[in-house]
Design a protein around this nucleic acid. Sequence first.
DNA 1: ATCCCGTCGG
DNA 2: CCGACGGGAT
Length: 350
Amino acid sequence: MSFQTEIVKWYLINKRALPWRDTTDAYVIWLSEIILQQTRVEQGLPYFNNFLQSYPTVTDFANATETQILKLWQGLGYYSRGRNMLFTARQIRDSHAGIFPRKYDDLIQLKGVGEYTAAAISSFSANESKAVLDGNVFRVLSRYFGIETAINSTEGKKQFNELAQALIEDQQPSLYNQAIMEFGALQCKPKSPDCGNCPVQSGCYAKTNDRVSLLPLKLKKLKKRTRYFNYFVCFDGGQLLVNKRTAGDVWQELYDFPLIETENPYLEDQEQFLTKLKTNFGEACIIAPLAKQKHLLTHQTIYVQFFALDNYIINFNMNAEIKWVSLAAFEELPQPKVITNFMISNSIKQ
DNA sequence: ATCCCGTCGG
DNA sequence: CCGACGGGAT
């Protein structure tokens, strides 16, 4: 039996009885799908019932005020869903004679209806053969077929889309789409799914290769770190004090200047800044701010502040990484862009 | 504290 | 492409 057939068979036995199943009314399906975006069935169910009772048709919905809609939406979160629904309902009332679209290409035009929702409504209401791709489907497909491409990468989306669309081809679109999502929600759950009871365990890549808890793959949301680099330019007798950057940070093996990193701009936490300054350059040193630069990396935003120093002594962890070099020698060394920019814009050359 | 999740707008 | 958008489950 094919994967699809097994999934549908499982669905017919295990599906929950939900009020938006077994209707082909695109308005009712739209109502349920928007409510269920980013929302669990148990939480959305009472809202769906309230909305449908209050607004049995899209025209009823369109005639509501924004306040009424948002009041009914209260507690469900992502309130732009409610606002977009009202906009869409009014558009359908005024420009589509109150008839809710059923074709994917028309649905996707509607505010608040993206790829997933357009596929859901078109398949459930009109059996259009568009594969749904929600979090459940990503999970089921990545595990069963062993797709190790991240689901939130451009390449991954393309790959999953093609696979999902191929799988639906010979199926009853509405039935199969509902089946695979329900299967993901109840059986192939994100955390500790009951693989021992799974009807497709023998063909499942993740089960066979012990990858269930690792799939689907998702790219880490890289949140940008903000850092403050305070560089000290020590220029004496034609020699420049430079620092070779070490492992475990940006610009590994490149050369910059002695650096004090602070958690805030130096003017906002002068105590921390001055303490570190004195430790490294002695009590009596004097600073003069030079140029500032904002440097953007993929994963970090670095605010760079250069300083000139006077009357300093060098205590700077006099490890092998810090040394005096001539300007000519420094020009031959690899440097981060931020350092080269500084040298050029200040016309520091021989 | 961390994860989950569709669409929009910048 | 990426952050904003909410609430619930774990």
